[in-house]
Design a protein around this nucleic acid. Structure first.
Lengths: 153, 153
DNA sequence: TTTTCATGTAATTCTATTTGTTACATGATG
DNA sequence: CATCATGTAACAAATAGAATTACATGAAAA
């Protein structure tokens, strides 16, 4: 597989950041957790910073932390901040002269937009705090699984 | 742009094939219309043939034609036959040990599946005949536009 | 103030996916 | 049997995304 995608990676890391709101985490550590490169983290998180979801500080003791409470950060916010394309939007070209192409584009575009709208609404109804609760439920159901966590001390 | 995508290309060509159900169209001509290569057409249409949407014949007078009436071919059928991925399905990995990753995957997967289901239902409610009707409406609204069609004799 | 640590970002390389191309086999028609 | 068309495999090219390198900026500690 490997179908990571920025949204899932960001969610994973943000949830870990939410576990310890007080100490910032450096890009290098986040990169280890996500099995990627620190620069990729900075690039990805740049959008989150602009959206006011995370804040970064330089120098000693610096790193990344959440800028708002987990309950105030929806998955929709995160998705929008990353502007990752979740749907393909398979249109033919900008302004086709062919009437058939125009009709195809119109139909597909409308269907895609509707699906996109649904997806965004659904993601907007979930917050980081909700997901953290899901994690707690999983943990209660299978306490041993916490040990399987590959990146805890 | 150039965001073609197999679905939009296939729809475009199928609609043109629906205009003249009686004479098969060769891959080379379809390729010209879609501004691509004949082999790409054959590859794309192979899925449609397996799904019983189109039929191909070899030799003189051969080519591609619709295998069913346009009213019996839904956009959902076509999309399924092409198995083009319209949504990104951004999951982390197959079976993550980390509970956080599992919770993220569960939430995203459910949202994605719902959007996918909606999209497929919506596409399944539209047939090629419906789109052909849309084309007719466009033509009535702007009769000159038929002349802009780049691939008519 | 100088060193160290961390982010910010541009530029480049790597890699995986998709698309396009070539070549040739198979089958149907005249 | 010559021609036309699909069917496919194999390969090349283009693309997009990710990873890497390099260096600048700023903050804390020494």
């Amino acid at each position: 597989m490997k179908r990571s995608g920025r949204l899932s990676v960001a969610l994973h890391l943000l949830l870990h950041m939410a576990e310890r709101p007080d100490d910032p985490i450096v890009s290098e550590r986040l990169a280890e957790w996500a099995d990627t490169n620190p620069v990729v983290i900075r690039r990805t998180f740049a959008g989150l910073r602009e959206a006011g979801i995370v804040a970064s500080t330089k120098g000693h003791g610096g790193g990344w932390r959440l800028a708002r409470a987990p309950a105030d950060i929806s998955l929709g916010d995160i998705q929008a901040a990353l502007n990752e394309r979740l749907l393909t939007h398979a249109l033919i070209e900008d302004t086709p002269g062919c009437l058939v192409e125009r009709a195809v584009n119109a139909a597909l575009d409308e269907a895609m937009r509707e699906a996109e709208r649904l997806l965004h609404e659904r993601l907007s109804r979930l917050s980081l705090a909700d997901l953290a609760k899901d994690v707690a439920v999983l943990w209660a159901a299978d306490p041993r699984a916490k040990g399987e966590h590959p990146h805890e001390p």
